[in-house]
Design a protein around this nucleic acid. Structure first.
Lengths: 346, 346
DNA sequence: TTGTAAGCGTTATCAA
DNA sequence: TTGATAACGCTTACAA
């Protein structure tokens, strides 16, 4: 493994000159540049990143923090898809990606600390946002560049950069669509109760109902983790009631598949007996039976924008918090239909 | 940000002493250890990784190389699942994960070189294995610790460490299962033609047929990328024949969903008219209609073992190549049934 | 335009 | 048991 000194010696110049050639400094003559470069690939020289990072105090690496494996698990296609977006942008800018491996909330906090204090990364992308998470306050206190995907806690709204959808609006629209199909008893199956996205969904759902002049019925809310089983559970709880909903707004496609499955096993037909809508528009939502009507939230774009934003955070003088709102789009498929209003027996 | 010198000064000792405390050297008295440790967390001291990596010549980071985004895309739940396995093991050992972001084959090769030459990582896990890929020969030439998930090229079989399933056996078993259901015209839908796993599947399929005394019909092979659309395409090609297959062995669950979808749209019923089996047993295979009979290959375990192996490769004196074969298990669901033999009209 | 030398924050060797 | 000091490989004033 050759060092900058080897190159210098062979090229008959000083190490600093080689360094300047690497940096493509304009102060170096064309001739020497060429000679040095020749030697460099003759030797297959690559700069040692650690030496470099040590003096530069920057790493060109972005830390990506996954939610703890306990909730919102890797199963959910949401994560590969954001990662794909992040990756694409990072690659363009020659940034590397350092992935968190923590399995618990404490484990993750430790990792974040390590990333920050030991200067492992230049900036961080948080792939989740929950109400009580200690990571955001920490990063803020340290004035460390970071971006969260999702909505940050209200208190921090103006000081943290984030990329999000307008989940209130999206949920409102989704609910309104169901209302337009003449449904009135609409169940709401939320995700983790401490995730902001869940609060926002709920909010939008309520707004739509209120606007339509329909009373919000607390018996129609239920919260579960964003996994298949969560959907199954939710259905049991909601449909066991005396007057069960005729339509279901579900926080996540994966959950919705659970919902579908459970409904089917109970003998309900979708969409004839009951309509189902959900969020995310991941690949699977197209493949289910029936294909899901779902709200596309452009997950790839969320990742891509997040990566763009950290880069800006890293470059900029600190504290210029920015927000980016990614759009949403209703994808109509076959899990919804107009409510059949039964003739009242004469 | 405090350094080892700050700690030393405040504790009234030399930097080297602090360093020894960090390393928990037995030569340091209990008293000083305690005092130094106190100062350390008073200052919130964390060692600078780059300084450390620079002198230690090791990073405690594992590089993870994804296949180029062009084929075998992130869509496929295979990747999150291996990653989950890798993550779990890496986390236990306090190893970090550095993710490749390359989108093209050349881009990836560049990244690998950079990881190796600039000493960014201690070892590498390759998440794919194709016939002509330049990465494996490169890593071998550099004597760099690495593990491939999948089967390495024949020539390197004894010199590279890998984790794999016995895909020949698995494919044979899967085909035999279909044969036992009395099918005789069995189509084979392979993945990328230059992936070893595809060759192995094909091989196992042929073995099963030969053993059963059934002629291998080249009209019944078809290869496509492991994506939904690949499955759809394949069905068109296979079913357009004069005597189409009555059962299909499909390389991947995701593809199989495409197969299912296309068959359904053509008016075939699965499994009544045609049986479908596939590989991987990813979550979706359980959720499809009908749920897929598929070969579980324990993807999480593949990742976990790969991480274990790189660690050993890193620790060991070079060149002690090891192989680890992970099991497989047939998961019977509802996409298969006994062939209905039509009475010949008298 | 180039070279010299100091410094980045650690660890390891050698003395004390 | 501890302290000085030289290295690790690079960048960047400052000099030439």
């Amino acid at each position: 493994m050759s060092t900058i000194k080897d190159v210098a010696k062979l090229a008959g110049v000083a190490p600093s000159t080689v360094s300047r050639v690497i940096a493509d400094s304009p102060k170096i003559s064309k001739r020497t540049k060429e000679r040095v470069k020749e030697i460099m690939d003759e030797l297959g020289y690559y700069p040692n990143v650690h030496a470099r990072n040590l003096v530069n105090k920057e790493t060109n690496v972005i830390g990506v923090i996954m939610p703890s494996a306990s909730y919102a698990p890797f199963q959910n296609p949401f994560f590969p898809e954001v990662l794909r977006g992040i990756t694409a942008q990072a690659n363009k800018d020659k940034y590397g990606l350092y992935l968190s491996t923590g399995q618990t909330e404490e484990g993750i906090m430790e990792e974040v600390k390590e990333m920050v204090y030991s200067r492992r990364v230049d900036g961080i992308i948080l792939l989740y946002s929950t109400t009580s998470d200690p990571v955001i306050p920490f990063l803020l206190r340290e004035k460390f560049p970071f971006v969260v995907i999702g909505r940050p806690p209200e208190d921090y709204k103006d000081v943290v950069s984030y990329v999000n959808n307008d989940n209130v609006k999206a949920a409102k629209m989704l609910t309104e669509y169901v209302l337009l199909l003449k449904h009135e008893r609409i169940g709401f199956i939320g995700g983790r109760k401490d995730a902001y996205v869940t609060l926002d969904h709920k909010h939008g759902y309520e707004q739509a109902l209120e606007t339509a002049g329909i009373e919000v019925n607390p018996m129609y809310f239920v919260y579960h983790d964003e996994v298949f089983e969560g959907g199954e559970q939710a259905v049991i709880e909601l449909m066991a009631q005396a007057t069960p909903p005729t339509a279901l707004v579900v926080a996540d496609d994966l959950m919705a598949l659970g919902v579908l499955r459970m409904l089917t096993s109970m003998g309900y037909r979708v969409p004839e007996d009951i309509s189902v809508v959900s969020f995310n528009n991941v690949l699977m939502s197209e493949l289910s039976a029936p294909p899901l009507t779902t709200m596309d939230i452009f997950i790839y774009e969320l990742g891509f924008q997040a990566a763009t934003l950290v880069r800006e955070q890293i470059a900029a003088p600190p504290l210029a918090a920015q927000a980016r709102i990614v759009g949403h789009k209703l994808v109509r498929r076959s899990s919804t239909s107009r409510r059949i209003i039964k003739e009242s027996t004469p």
